[in-house]
């Protein structure tokens, strides 16, 4: 990812990626966010709280796939808190 794209990423996307990275690492955090945004037709740089529900659901499934249900729930909870 180039620097400009990284800078233009909105605060919410950054926060999601940060929470994800703490749980599954940088590489998977990016991959999970990118893939789920693509699947849901969301521009990752334009994520807004109203688009968060389906995204969070998918992210939770991804984290469950890569780690565990517990980690997925913890991540989802932190993301919800971040949205509020």
């Amino acid at each position: 990812m180039n620097v400009l794209a990284e800078e233009s990423m909105n605060v919410l996307a950054k926060e999601i990626e940060k929470i994800l990275a703490e749980a599954v690492g940088d590489f998977l955090a990016k991959a999970i966010l990118n893939k789920n945004c693509t699947l849901l037709g969301i521009n990752r740089d334009l994520i807004t709280p109203d688009k968060m529900s389906p995204l969070l659901q998918n992210i939770q499934r991804s984290v469950t796939f890569f780690d565990s249900e517990e980690t997925a729930q913890s991540v989802a909870a932190r993301m919800l808190a971040a949205v509020k």
């Binding site: 699947l39 499934r61 796939f65 989802a76 909870a77």
Partner: peptide, 18 residues
Amino acid sequence: LHDREIAKKPGPGSSEPG
């Protein structure tokens, strides 16, 4: 594998985030 898993519809037992 992840992409295939995510592409599946969520099962009836799957929980809503939050």
